[in-house]
Write a protein that binds this DNA or RNA. Structure first.
Lengths: 210, 210
DNA sequence: AATAGTTAGTAACAATAGTTACATTATTAT
DNA sequence: ATAATAATGTAACTATTGTTACTAACTATT
């Protein structure tokens, strides 16, 4: 584990902290689609992403979902931070978007390190800042963009975190992530295809205009 | 200033920290409508609210606004925190919703205290948590509610922070805050009035069903 | 009091998004 | 191979929101 820590977090943390993380952290490999956090969960550990991507979702009272953003390598989940430190339940759902490697840190250590390591404190605050920025971007997208633009942005983002211009997803799944209906998505996808921005196939979409 | 500090923040901070805040903080009284922070501003100090309320707004590329939430007594602006600690520009606009009393803390001290006072660190993290929660609530409102529900929620929230069931606002101003058009707001307000939930008057609205 | 500006009400229409229903094609299971 | 299931395409209709245009009422200024 220590090599991967060095590689992805070496520039952020001092050696002593890296050593501590190595001692108390648990290395995990998570398959695509695995649910890491459910709404209402009490969080007992916090993930540091090594590779892969995680999709963060919000849910309304009727159980309808809405994607907030993707988390990538070098990130952590600030919502998790927030829940751990506030000792409250998770407000979001987290699902592995791709196969993912991560290190889980126990809550107790997180808090201890806040007083002990300046670099950890900085990392935690920076994570909050990043997540705040992403939440604002999510708000911009939802509030200011029409569904056709939102859809195209979603496709591009998804291609990005998957490092692949070909996305494997059904119209139904997209509709779920964007909180609309399958028919609406099919209709808009068809328009995007006619405009030459994507190429439609069963179970996959190729994003041309990246 | 020290009495008001004691009164509103005494239960949060130790005496030594309260003394420091008293020494370096600047007490300010802000009139309703005053713009505290503009998008793109570099923030050099951070507000602690004593009384009153502040409206936090987001803006899109076309200059159209959207209200995110109100901040009240005992709160601070986590966006400001975020900007200060990240040394980045403000992503939001802050306008005094009512006459407001606050204490401004210089950035340098904020950072110093993070290492020095456990209670300050806790306060900062708690503020991030609160703001994150409010941003999520804003997302719920925008994404999951239709305009009529959003409007009514807005009216109730506004009555709340103003401690007054009668709101002084024009349809045009509401339309600005909710990022829609005046005609839409007038139409929906009329429906709410017919349903007996509000009472319409020129330049003011009485919220009945609080 | 006359005038100009602001605020609000309403009709008519356009654009966008959501719903229902059904057909077609591809994939999987039997 | 046949049947069942999943994924997609499309039409027709409804609901919601946005736009334009015009009128009426109130307010402040000269």
């Amino acid at each position: 584990m220590i090599e991967e820590l060095q590689q992805h977090y070496g520039y952020l943390f001092e050696d002593e902290l890296l050593q501590e993380i190595n001692n108390v952290g648990t290395y995990k490999e998570i398959p695509e689609g695995f649910k890491l956090i459910e709404i209402g969960d009490y969080i007992k550990s916090m993930p540091l992403l090594i590779s892969g991507a995680i999709k963060i979702l919000r849910e309304d009272d009727d159980g309808d979902e809405l994607i907030l953003y993707f988390i990538e390598q070098g990130d952590t989940c600030a919502m998790t931070l927030s829940c751990c430190l506030g000792n409250s339940k998770s407000e979001i759902r987290a699902i592995a978007e791709t196969d993912t490697k991560l290190i889980m840190i126990p809550v107790a250590k997180m808090e201890e390190w806040l007083g002990k390591y300046k670099s950890w404190q900085k990392f935690v605050l920076q994570s909050y800042h990043n997540r705040m920025t992403e939440l604002l971007e999510a708000i911009d997208t939802i509030a200011f963009l029409k569904m056709d633009k939102r859809l195209f942005k979603y496709l591009k983002d998804k291609a990005m975190v998957n490092h692949n211009e070909i996305i494997h997803v059904t119209h139904q799944q997209i509709a779920g992530d964007l909180h609309t209906s399958r028919v609406v998505i099919s209709r808009l996808l068809k328009t995007l295809e006619i405009d030459g921005k994507i190429e439609l196939n069963r179970n996959s979409i190729k994003v041309i205009d990246l």
